[in-house]
């Protein structure tokens, strides 16, 4: 699989959040703001790249029968590393993400890539695949977080300084002032509804592209298939 193909697969065609619908639990639970979404997406991205590289490197020595426990151990190791790093450097974000950082272990998108891609491909491609899948996941998280934050609170990048340092406080945009936040958008049901709309938009774009790409009917050439 070429790098271009891997990029296309990860970002659009086989996007972990929009097409595979994996990792919905963190996707729906923490995307109340763009900052949270970015933090979790970035953490998942790092875990995905690390686990893909490791799984790819050890793939020759892991017996088929016990590969799943091995993959889970590898992923859990990386998640622990990320969790400790976040605890040390972005403590505010660490607190607002809470249980969803350790829960990255259970994110099916990661073990799915280990199983479907990294265990069959050389490490460079696996690393790139992890990067692209992680980026695809992060982008969807950010779009969802943006929609929910705008509808719910009328702001964007609220609390970005928790992730990026003090300068990022200037990033906070207040689109309109709300006296009462629309709690529905901030609570999980809003995430389900917004996610449904994003998937619908993605599908309708695909549909439109297919219609445009539909070539004029090909000339049918019949090949003789029966053996003499």
């Amino acid at each position: 699989m070429s790098y271009k193909e891997i990029t296309w697969q990860g970002l659009w065609e086989n996007n972990p959040a929009l097409v595979q619908l994996l990792g919905l639990c963190p996707l729906l639970a923490v995307t109340a703001t763009v900052t949270n979404a970015l933090g979790l997406g970035f953490a998942t991205l790092l875990v995905l790249v690390g686990s893909n590289i490791t799984v790819s490197l050890v793939r020759e020595w892991v017996p088929k029968e016990i590969r799943i426990p091995v993959f889970v151990m590898v992923i859990a190791t990386f998640v622990t590393v990320i969790q400790l790093l976040m605890n040390a450097y972005v403590y505010g974000l660490y607190q607002s993400l809470g249980i969803f950082i350790p829960l990255i272990v259970t994110n099916c998108a990661i073990i799915g890539r280990a199983e479907a891609f990294a265990s069959k491909n050389p490490w460079r491609r696996s690393a790139f695949d992890g990067l692209m899948m992680g980026l695809g996941f992060t982008l969807v998280l950010m779009v969802l977080g943006g929609i929910r934050e705008i509808i719910g609170n009328g702001t964007l990048f609220d609390g970005a300084e928790l992730l990026l340092g003090d300068w990022a406080a200037a990033l906070r945009i207040e689109l309109f002032a709300v006296d009462y936040p629309l709690l529905l958008a901030i609570l999980p049901p809003g995430a389900f509804i917004a996610m449904g709309f994003i998937i619908a938009i993605k599908n309708s774009i695909d549909h439109y592209r297919e219609q445009r790409a539909a070539k004029p009917a090909k000339e049918v050439t019949r090949a003789r298939v029966t053996a003499q």
Binding site: Y180, L182, L183, L184, L187
Partner: peptide
């Protein structure tokens, strides 16, 4: 229900 969950006070 959407209104009740989103704006309990009102």
């Amino acid at each position: 229900v959407v209104l009740l969950i989103s704006f309990p006070v009102q």
